[in-house]
Nucleic acid binder design. Structure first.
Lengths: 217, 217
DNA sequence: ACAAAAGTGTTAGTGTTACACCCATGT
DNA sequence: ACATGGGTGTAACACTAACACTTTTGT
């Protein structure tokens, strides 16, 4: 264990606690929602993002996964770091830095009954979690403007209509059909399959370019 | 002071220390450089970014300013948060999370004799500071692709040639003159002044649109 | 036959790139 | 006069947005 010239280790100096919070976004009824839970312990009953304190030997990503597991019973995702929230009074238990994370998942990975709220009409949340939700929504919206289904919600194969539905839900409004198709087509390749069975012309299936599927001959 | 049900405060739980590090970028000889210093105390003699531990009641921005003042004698800037570096073994004194920051300043604000290194051919640095420099360079390059002189290095008035020189230094390569002018012209307004005295046609002076100068009648 | 959904042709407008050239000044 | 650096005209090309249309299915 390292000691400084006065014999103290790093932990002997007073320093902020560190928490992670995760804005787990999902699409419900065609609009972007965030998964919430009701706090127990401190601030009992308030709606909040799943979060936890970072243990001394834990990576941020692992702490974020632990928060999702403990508060929402969700596993196996990979939240992305957003930024640090550092208002000295954001938590009245003491000085706590919070590192906000985001991820976007299919509704199916949330246990039935999980509480969610639309990101654009979010109720008051504990701490500064409202600001985190806003930052998270802005983040995923920016990513979805740049590439088709960056979070891989749709699985390996999907139709252009399914993809457009997802992007409209994320963006929070309708997108023009023809422009949207031509915009994303460059990043997709047809699998050759068709989605059939419903009324209307069968839709071609696509996958993101450069993914498994048939490897090139 | 808040206590949990076992009578402990937050500080009684073992938790990571938190540091800030600042990649202070500047332009030297037409290329993007980063200001460095030689460490004293732990890791004596190694080249590193200016950094410091965050005090328990201090905001990240204030800690970053303190690091700049103590290690580089630079004051009055406003570094921007980049992201958290959290490898558990990045500091052999114990568990230390580092929140990297960036800023871009005129060479003139650095005391003469300040050590700098070109970001693209950076020597080995202490901790994971090499990765921070790479992230910082990518960040300012992205910002400079989007708007003219976002850091305000050039002051209130400048010619298009001066602006282009700055952007070429940041980008790390030449930019086509005519395209560059037309690209930035939408975000600038002419002040009416001319830069004269040197050989060649006098250059018009510009300012960023929506800044002091003459207020509209 | 008809509704529903997929998919395309076309056009107008806008932005990008690069070539070439003209303009105003100091020496 | 001429070198130096500032500034612009123009044409090819690509991208975007919107309209209207054709195609292929289930009922």
């Amino acid at each position: 264990m390292w000691r400084d010239e006065t014999g103290r280790s790093l932990a002997d100096y007073p320093h902020p606690s560190v928490a992670v919070d995760v804005a787990l976004l999902t699409v419900v009824d065609g609009t972007l929602h965030v998964a919430l839970h009701r706090r127990e312990g401190h601030a009992t009953g308030e709606l909040a993002l799943p979060g936890t304190f970072v243990r001394i030997d834990e990576r941020l990503a692992d702490a974020a996964l632990r928060a999702l597991r403990d508060h929402l019973e969700v596993t196996g995702r990979s939240p992305e770091q957003l930024r640090v929230f550092d208002d000295p009074h954001r938590d009245d238990r003491g000085r706590v830095l919070a590192i906000a994370h985001v991820d976007l998942v299919d509704r199916g990975v949330l246990p039935t009954g999980t509480e969610t709220a639309a990101v654009d009409t979010c109720p008051t949340l504990a701490f500064d979690h409202g600001a985190m939700v806003a930052a998270a929504a802005e983040h995923v919206r920016a990513r979805h403007r740049g590439s088709p289904d960056p979070a891989g919600l749709l699985g390996a194969e999907f139709t252009l209509a399914e993809l457009q539905g997802l992007h409209e839900a994320v963006a929070g409004g309708p997108l023009p059909k023809d422009t949207f198709r031509r915009h994303v087509l460059g990043d997709l390749e047809p699998t050759g399959g068709l989605r059939t069975g419903v009324v209307g012309k069968p839709a071609r299936l696509f996958r993101r370019a450069g993914e498994p599927g048939q490897p090139p001959v």
